[in-house]
C-alpha cells in the first residue's frame, strides 16, 4: 500500500496539471523549515568557517591578493568598454531585444549548494515574495549560472547549467550566426555543445552566449560557455564540442536572478 501511495504522489508531482498540489505542499514546508535551518546554520557556520580559515589561512591570503588584482583589472576594462556597451545597448534596443543590463535583477544569497547528491542545484534566499519565479535565469560569477526550477515563498531552487537536465540554446561565431545547445553532463564533467553542424567555424576558447532565437528560454547575450575542444567524426551528423562554463560555479555565495520570464 505504501508503494502504491508513493507512486501516486510521484505521479501527482510529475503531471503538469497536478504539479501545483505537490509544489504547494513543498512551498508551505519550506516556509516553515527555512527559519529553523537558518537558525542552525547561523550557529554552525562560524564554527566551520573558523576551522576552515585556520587550516587554509595561507591560501585565503593569496586568494585575496589575486581578487584585489582582478578587481583592479575589471575596473579598468569597465572604464574602457563603457562607450562600446552604450552603443551595443542602443543597437539591441533598436532590434527590440532585451539586453541583460536593461533587465532588473534580484540579488540573492545562496543558502545551500547541491542539496541532493543526484542533482546540481542551489537553494537561494529569495522566492515568489521577492519576485523570483520559475523559469527565470540566474547569473553570477561571470556568466549564466542556471535557471529557477522551483520557487517557494521566500526561497527558490536553481538548476545549474552543469546539471544533466539543463539545456541552453546558444549563439556563437561571427555575427552570432551559428547556434547550438549547451547540455549539462553532471558534476565534474565537461559540458557538451550539441546540434552544431560538422566542420562549423569554431575556435578554442570561443565564447557562446544565450541565443536570441524566438521562444528562447533565456534573454539573449548572457555568456554561457567557452569552447574547450572540438572535432568532427567521419560520417557524424554534428560536431563533437566540449565546453566549460564561463561562470565560476565554485563561487556562488551571491547570484542575481534576472526578472525575465520565458515566452509562453
Amino acid at each position: 500500500m505504501l508503494v502504491v501511495l508513493s507512486l501516486s504522489i510521484i505521479s501527482l508531482d510529475l503531471n503538469s496539471r497536478t504539479h501545483g498540489i505537490t509544489s504547494g505542499v513543498k512551498s508551505v514546508a519550506n516556509s516553515v523549515f527555512s527559519p529553523l535551518r537558518g537558525a542552525v546554520d547561523d550557529v554552525i557556520d562560524p564554527i566551520g568557517d573558523f576551522f576552515a580559515g585556520a587550516v587554509h589561512y595561507g591560501a585565503l591570503q593569496s586568494e585575496n591578493q589575486k581578487l584585489a588584482a582582478t578587481v583592479g583589472q575589471l575596473r579598468q576594462e569597465q572604464a574602457e568598454k563603457g562607450f562600446e556597451q552604450s552603443q551595443l545597448r542602443n543597437v539591441m534596443a533598436l532590434q527590440n531585444l532585451p539586453f541583460l543590463n536593461a533587465l532588473s535583477t534580484v540579488t540573492a544569497q545562496t543558502q545551500e549548494i547541491y542539496t541532493s547528491n543526484f542533482t546540481m542545484t542551489i537553494t537561494i534566499d529569495k522566492g515568489r515574495a521577492d519576485g523570483v519565479d520559475v523559469g527565470m535565469p540566474v547569473v553570477g560569477a561571470g556568466g549564466l549560472v542556471g535557471q529557477v526550477i522551483q520557487s517557494f515563498h521566500h526561497t527558490a531552487v536553481v538548476q545549474l547549467i552543469t546539471d544533466g537536465q539543463s539545456k541552453v540554446g546558444v549563439s556563437f561565431g561571427q555575427g552570432m550566426s551559428l547556434t547550438g545547445t549547451v547540455d549539462g553532463q553532471g558534476p565534474d564533467s565537461s559540458m557538451t555543445a550539441d546540434l552544431i553542424a560538422p566542420h562549423a567555424a569554431l575556435t578554442k576558447g570561443e565564447k557562446m552566449y544565450t541565443s536570441s532565437l524566438d521562444a528562447a528560454a533565456f534573454p539573449p547575450g548572457i555568456p554561457v560557455a567557452r569552447v574547450k575542444s572540438f572535432h568532427s567524426s567521419a560520417g557524424a551528423s554534428q560536431e563533437t564540442v566540449n565546453v566549460t562554463p564561463i561562470a565560476n560555479l565554485t563561487q556562488l555565495a551571491y547570484v542575481d536572478v534576472v526578472v525575465w520570464e520565458p515566452p509562453a
Binding site: 501511495l5 510521484i10 510529475l14
Partner: peptide, 25 residues
C-alpha cells in the same frame, strides 16, 4: 521509511515521493 522519506522529499529537488518510495521498500 515512507514517512521519513516523504519528509526529506519536502526539501529535495528530486521528484516528490521518490524518497518515500525508496524508504518504504
Amino acid at each position: 521509511g515512507f514517512w521519513s522519506g516523504l519528509a526529506f522529499d519536502l526539501v529535495l529537488p528530486t521528484p516528490f515521493g521518490l524518497s518515500a518510495l525508496v524508504g518504504s521498500l
